[in-house]
Structures are given as structure tokens and as C-alpha cells.
């Protein structure tokens, strides 16, 4: 390679349908992975806060292990190691599962920080006006927490988007794999990875902008902490 020094992004972009297909898979992985991660992460945070102590320790241990090891190693462990304990998954479900577990560990920490950040006085005030525990959760804790954790949740969700690229390593046909395959086909590696970088960059910037807009709309509910 290298004889042809012309830098032709048009070549890569001429495969637009294949790129869009990969993009579709990336978005699917991202949305399902982070939605599951958000939900499971919330359950983990609730379990650690309100559950019995041994459950809390167990959950904390699992979260620390997931946060202390590379996502790629987790993916390999699940995808290649799983069959040895009877967990035989195709690469797409394996990828989604790995992503969801990974995301859940990080989201649970954000939820936990959100719980901790709600001033005790607000809960006492809810108690005083006679809210039930359920009403307090729904009317006070959840809305206040949403405002508090939104910026870090947006950051985390963007991080998950970037992590989906790693799933190309187990041949999952998402954006990175599709575009790099086009590059390999034409020995146009630099072009293909440039296009890829620009696509991810655009996606991340769009998400960031949407996140900031949501923050601005919610900002009137902010309170000093």
C-alpha cells in the first residue's frame, strides 16, 4: 500500500448505504445498551442504598470490578469465555449485554451521587407536609435527582457511544467495522478512519448540544447545594 497518495474521502462516502447500515447498528447498540444500563444502574443504586448490607457489599464489589477492568477484556470474557459456562451468545446479544453491564456499573455510581446530593432538609420537608414515601420518591427525589445528575448522565451516555466502537473487535457489524471494511477493500485505511472519526465526532457533538439544551430547559429547577 501507500503507492497511491491521493486522499479521497469521496471513495469511502460512495458506500453511503453500507455506512448508514453500520450507523444503524451502532445507534441500536447505543440506545439499547444505555437504556438497559440506566435502568439496571438505578436498581443497583437503590439496592445499595435501601437493600440489606450484604447485598450492598456484593453490588459494590461487582461495580468496582467492572469499573476497574477494561471494557474490551469484559467483552472477550463474555463472548469467548461465556460458552465455557454455558453462556453461548451471538456477537450482537453478547455486545449488548456487555455494554449494558458496563454502562450499569457507571450509571449506578451517578444515580448514587444523585441520591446523596439531595439535601436532607428537602426530604424532611416532604415528611412534614405529610408525603408518603412513594410520593416523596416520585415528587421530590426523582425530579431533583434528574436535574442534579443530568450533566454527568449526558457525558456518560456519550462515553457509551464511543465504547460501542470496541464491539467491532468481536466482528459486530457496527459503524467502525463497516467503514474499516470499506477501507480494507480499497487499501484506503487513512481515508476510512478519517471518515469514521468525523462521523463519531459529529454524533458526539450533536448529543452534547442536545444535552446542553436539556440542561438549559431544566436549569430553572436547579437549586444551590
Amino acid at each position: 500500500m501507500g503507492a497511491d497518495m491521493s486522499f479521497d474521502l469521496g471513495l469511502i462516502l460512495s458506500y453511503l448505504p453500507r455506512i448508514l447500515e453500520g450507523l444503524g447498528v451502532t445507534l441500536m447498540l447505543w440506545v439499547i445498551g444505555s437504556a438497559l444500563g440506566l435502568a439496571v444502574g438505578f436498581a443497583v443504586a437503590v439496592g445499595r442504598r435501601y437493600g440489606p448490607a450484604p447485598l450492598g457489599w456484593l453490588l459494590r464489589g461487582i461495580v468496582e470490578v467492572i469499573r476497574g477492568t477494561p471494557f474490551l477484556v469484559q467483552v472477550f470474557l463474555l463472548y469467548y469465555g461465556g460458552p465455557f459456562i454455558g453462556l453461548r451468545l451471538e456477537n450482537i446479544p453478547a455486545g449488548i449485554l456487555a455494554l449494558a453491564i458496563y454502562a450499569a456499573a457507571y450509571y449506578s455510581e451517578l444515580w448514587r451521587a444523585g441520591f446523596d446530593a439531595i439535601p436532607k432538609g428537602h426530604l424532611e420537608a416532604a415528611d412534614c407536609v405529610g408525603f408518603t414515601e412513594w410520593q416523596t420518591l416520585r415528587r421530590i427525589i426523582l425530579p431533583e435527582m434528574t436535574v442534579l445528575v443530568l450533566p454527568s448522565m449526558v457525558n456518560m451516555t456519550i462515553l457509551i457511544l464511543k465504547e460501542t466502537a470496541i464491539l467491532s473487535i468481536i466482528s459486530l457489524p457496527e459503524l467502525t467495522l463497516s467503514v474499516s471494511a470499506i477501507g480494507t477493500q480499497h487499501y484506503a485505511f487513512v481515508e476510512s478512519f478519517t471518515v469514521l472519526a468525523l462521523l463519531y465526532w459529529a454524533l458526539v457533538e450533536i448529543c452534547g448540544a442536545l444535552g446542553r439544551r436539556a440542561e438549559a430547559r431544566l436549569s430553572k429547577y436547579r437549586f444551590a447545594t
Partner: peptide, 22 residues
């Protein structure tokens, strides 16, 4: 900052790996 935080490290690594020789 925007570019290197806005793209996956995997893509950055591959881009640099092929870009340097080219």
C-alpha cells in the same frame, strides 16, 4: 479537545497507526 474527546480511542489509534506510515 473536542476532537480527541469526541471520537473513540480505537478509531484514533487506527487512524494514527495508518496515518504515520502514509
Amino acid at each position: 479537545v473536542s476532537f480527541f474527546r469526541g471520537t473513540p480511542l480505537l478509531v484514533q489509534l487506527l487512524l494514527i497507526y495508518y496515518l504515520l506510515p502514509s
